[in-house]
Amino acid sequence: MTNLLLVEDNELNRDMLSRRLEKMGYIVDLAVNGQEGVDKTRQSGPDLVLMDISMPVLDGWEALRILKNDTETKHIPIIALTAHAMTSDRDKADEMGFNDYATKPVDFPALVHMIEACLNSAR
């Protein structure tokens, strides 16, 4: 069973994604902001994290940085979720350490594909 952590501040988005992911068979944990995301990652160590970028308290970049610098968590693949579709964002995402990058509205089949790919390479 694959454990996913979904870090998303928007309630509707959280609901949509988690329901669809669970239907696909994933176990989905939720975090509402960056800080919670970091904490929960440290605590439960999911197999993969889906991280929204623009969030209050701690945004996606910061959360990523923290997790990637933490020896305990740096091995966990993190996929960025964002409303922006700029190439600079993509490059930045790459640079910062995101394993992959998906834009909203999420192309769900593509996302699943991405998740599997990251999990495979992580293993």
């Binding site: 928007n10 509707l12 988005n13 949509m16 669809r20 509205p105």
Partner: peptide, 14 residues
């Protein structure tokens, strides 16, 4: 505008 729209799109797909 996008946020609710995303919801409409997403939920309709669900």
């Amino acid at each position: 505008l996008r946020t609710p729209l995303n919801a409409i799109i997403g939920y309709s797909e669900i």
